[in-house]
C-alpha cells in the first residue's frame, strides 16, 4: 500500500491538489488501495461535511445528501413510499455492514468489479491505459453486453445507481469552477477509447447531493436483481422499473437495466416502445427486445440477454398487478 496523507475536508471550496481524492465510506476505495489498483497521494475525508441529510425540495421531490448512508436512505419513509425501487435496490446491494458505511455519492462512484481491473498485476485498460483487455477472450461472464468497446467491457456494479437512472435523478456537483447539475444518466461515461475515465466529473469536483424529481409513476416501482447466490453478491442482471397503467394501456413507464453495461443502463428505447401499448407480457417482452437489439454478447455472457428480457417482463407484470 502506497503511503498517503489523510485530512478532513472543512468546506466545499477546499478543492483537491493533483494526486488527491475524496474519501467517503471507503468500502471500495480502501480495498483498491490495498490491492495497489488505486494509489492516491492524499485522501480528503468528506464525511464530516454537512451532506448527510435527506430533505424535501421546495417544489416537491427529495434531495439526498451525498454522505447519506445507504442503510439510512433505504429506510427513509419518503423513499420507501414515493420511490420504492430505490429502497429495494439499496437493500439488494452488498451487506448490512457495508450499507452502514457506504454513502450515496460513494456508491455512485464505485468502480467496476471486473476481475482484471481488481488485480494490479493483470493487464487492464482501465487501471493501466494501453495494457489491453484480457476479458474479451478471457473471463467475461459478468461483463457488458451493452455499451462496451474494444478497450473495455466492464460493468458498473451499483444497484442503487440503476434505480436512480430509472427515476430521472439529478446529480448536484460542486467544484473549483463552481456548482453544476447533470442527470445521473450522464454521470457515468461509456468507455470508448478512454476507459480509464469512469465519469463526467472533473478533478476536484464533489457530488454534494442527488435530487429525485416529483415522479408519480415512481410510487409503483420495483427492483429485481438476479445473482449467483442469495445474498452478498453483485448482480448478474437487474431491472429497475416503474409503471403506471390507465385503461389497460401503459400510461407512463421508467426502466433501467443493471449489470449489463459500463453504466446504469436507462432503457429509453424500451420505454418508448411501451408507451400507449397494452400492459401485457407480450408488450413487455417486445419492449425489452427493442432495447436489447443493440446487445453484443460475447462467448459466455449471452445469457444476460435472456435474463434481462425475462426480468423486464416479470418485473413489469408484477407492477401491473400491484394496485395499492
Amino acid at each position: 500500500m502506497k503511503t498517503f496523507e489523510y485530512r478532513t475536508a472543512t468546506g466545499l471550496a477546499d478543492g483537491l491538489e493533483p494526486g488527491a481524492v475524496f474519501l467517503a465510506g471507503g468500502t471500495n476505495l480502501v480495498d483498491l488501495m490495498k490491492l495497489g489498483v488505486a494509489t492516491p497521494d492524499v485522501l480528503v475525508d468528506v464525511t464530516r461535511l454537512p451532506l448527510d441529510q435527506v430533505t424535501e425540495l421546495p417544489g416537491g421531490g427529495v434531495r439526498i445528501g451525498s454522505a447519506v448512508r445507504n442503510s439510512d436512505l433505504a429506510a427513509d419513509r419518503r423513499i420507501r413510499t414515493g420511490y420504492p425501487v430505490l429502497s429495494q435496490a439499496l437493500l439488494a446491494g452488498a451487506s448490512g455492514q457495508l450499507r452502514n458505511m457506504a454513502t450515496t455519492g460513494g456508491n455512485l462512484l464505485q468502480r467496476t468489479r471486473c476481475r482484471y481491473f481488481m488485480d494490479a498485476t493483470m493487464p487492464c485498460n482501465k487501471h493501466l491505459p494501453g495494457s489491453g483487455c484480457p476479458a474479451r477472450e478471457g473471463d467475461h461472464r459478468n461483463l457488458a453486453v451493452l455499451g462496451g468497446s474494444d478497450a473495455c467491457i466492464a460493468t458498473h456494479p451499483s444497484d442503487m445507481a440503476v434505480a436512480l437512472a430509472a427515476l430521472d435523478a439529478v446529480v448536484q456537483i460542486d467544484g473549483p469552477a463552481g456548482s453544476r447539475s447533470i442527470p445521473v444518466t450522464d454521470l457515468h461515461r461509456l468507455p470508448g477509447d478512454t476507459p480509464e475515465r469512469d465519469t463526467a466529473l472533473e478533478h476536484g469536483e464533489l457530488i454534494t447531493a442527488v435530487d429525485l424529481p416529483v415522479l408519480p409513476v415512481a410510487a409503483r416501482s420495483a427492483y429485481r436483481k438476479a445473482r449467483d447466490r442469495a445474498s452478498y453478491a453483485f448482480a448478474v442482471g437487474a431491472v429497475a422499473a416503474a409503471l403506471e397503467v390507465k385503461d389497460g394501456l401503459v400510461h407512463d413507464v421508467r426502466l433501467a437495466f443493471g449489470a449489463v453495461a459500463p453504466k446504469p443502463w436507462r432503457a429509453l428505447a424500451a420505454e418508448q416502445a411501451l408507451r400507449g401499448q397494452p400492459a401485457t407480457r407480450e408488450s413487455f417482452l417486445a419492449a425489452a427486445d427493442a432495447e436489447l437489439a443493440a446487445a453484443q454478447p460475447l462467448r459466455d455472457n449471452a445469457y444476460k440477454v435472456t435474463l434481462i428480457r425475462n426480468l423486464t417482463a416479470a418485473t413489469l407484470s408484477a407492477l401491473t398487478g400491484d394496485v395499492r
Binding site: 476481475r115 482484471y116 481488481m118 488485480d119 493483470m122 484480457p134 477472450e137 478471457g138 473471463d139 461472464r141
Partner: peptide
C-alpha cells in the same frame, strides 16, 4: 475461474 491466456484464477477473493 481460469484465464488460460494469463494462466491465472481470476476470481481470487
Amino acid at each position: 475461474v481460469l484465464d488460460p491466456a494469463l494462466g491465472a484464477w481470476v476470481n481470487h477473493d
